[in-house]
């Protein structure tokens, strides 16, 4: 699924990565537990999370996750955006809940990791 489609389906706002909305994500993982995120296999994963702090960005950096969707209107701080830009991450923010965003994307064919 293209990142532009994720934005549209989740009524999301693009915060970082304007030049990457044409990129694809192959699957998605919804979690607030970064320990779980660090155990994911390497592939083009969209991370959907309500955990919005600098370690969310760090975790994505280490796990080679290029795309994050923050739910429930969680706002990335300037420090987070800066780090995301340095690492070429796409950051989006949606007003929807974790459940709703995940459900919408799943229904449109985005695969779960497990």
């Amino acid at each position: 699924m293209k990142i532009s489609e994720v934005l549209e389906l989740c009524n999301a706002r693009l915060v970082c990565g304007d030049d990457r909305t044409g990129n694809e994500v192959l699957s998605a993982f919804s979690s607030d537990l970064m320990s779980d995120v660090l155990m994911l296999p390497a592939q083009k994963i969209l991370l959907i999370t309500g955990l919005c702090n600098i370690q969310t960005i760090r975790t994505a950096e280490m796990a080679d996750i290029r795309c994050i969707l923050f739910v429930r209107n969680k706002k990335a701080s300037e420090e987070m955006k800066q780090l995301a830009r340095e690492n070429g991450l796409v950051i989006m923010e949606t007003p929807f809940s974790l459940f709703r965003a995940s459900g919408l994307l799943f229904a449109r064919g985005l695969s779960p990791v497990y």
């Binding site: 970064m34 320990s35 779980d36 155990m39 955990l51 702090n53 370690q55 969310t56 975790t59």
Partner: peptide, 8 residues
Amino acid sequence: MGFGAGMG
């Protein structure tokens, strides 16, 4: 911070 689940 999303850690401390005993998996590290």
